[in-house]
Computed example of a mutant assay.
Amino acid sequence: MDLAAKLPDMTDSALDTLNGNASRLIQSGTTAQKKAATALMPALEQELATRRLAKQAAKKASDAARPTPVRKRAKAKAAD
């Protein structure tokens, strides 16, 4: 099983770390590391985008389910 197939099972933290490592290797790795990181990036970016959209949708749903707060009116000051 290659690393791209494991992406859906990884935690968000692990994906962020992998993304940073792959970006770094593309810039300064050996030829083999650059090749592997470059091959992994499209799947990694797709997984990150999918999760980002899922989080946004969950937040929208959560916000929509939350009732709008009703503010109480301030009491009128007594006239002297």
Rank of each mutant, 00 (worst) to 15 (best):
D2M: 09
L3H: 00
L3K: 05
L3N: 00
A5P: 06
A5F: 11
A5S: 15
K6Q: 15
K6V: 13
L7Q: 04
L7Y: 10
P8T: 09
P8L: 08
T11M: 03
D12R: 13
S13V: 10
S13I: 07
S13Y: 12
S13N: 14
A14T: 09
L15K: 12
L15Y: 10
L15R: 10
L15T: 07
D16G: 10
D16W: 12
T17V: 13
N19D: 14
N19Y: 15
G20C: 08
N21F: 12
A22I: 08
I26A: 07
Q27F: 05
Q27K: 15
S28C: 04
T30I: 05
T31F: 08
T31R: 14
A32G: 05
Q33I: 06
K34Y: 07
K35R: 15
K35F: 12
A37E: 00
T38D: 04
T38Y: 04
A39C: 03
L40D: 01
L40P: 00
M41R: 11
A43G: 08
A43I: 09
E45H: 10
E45Q: 15
Q46V: 10
E47M: 02
L48R: 04
T50Q: 14
R52C: 04
R52K: 13
L53W: 07
K55S: 10
Q56C: 04
Q56H: 08
Q56K: 13
A57V: 09
A58G: 06
A58N: 09
A58W: 09
A58Q: 13
K59D: 14
K59N: 12
K60S: 12
K60A: 14
K60E: 15
A61Y: 05
A61P: 04
S62T: 09
S62F: 13
D63A: 09
A64T: 03
A64Y: 03
A64V: 02
A64H: 06
A65V: 02
A65F: 06
R66V: 05
R66T: 13
P67N: 04
P67I: 00
P67D: 02
P67T: 04
T68E: 12
T68V: 14
P69N: 01
P69D: 08
V70C: 04
V70S: 07
V70W: 00
R71V: 07
R71D: 11
K72R: 13
K72Q: 11
R73C: 00
K75Q: 02
K75A: 01
A76N: 03
K77G: 00
A78V: 03
A79C: 06
A79S: 09
D80K: 03
D80P: 00
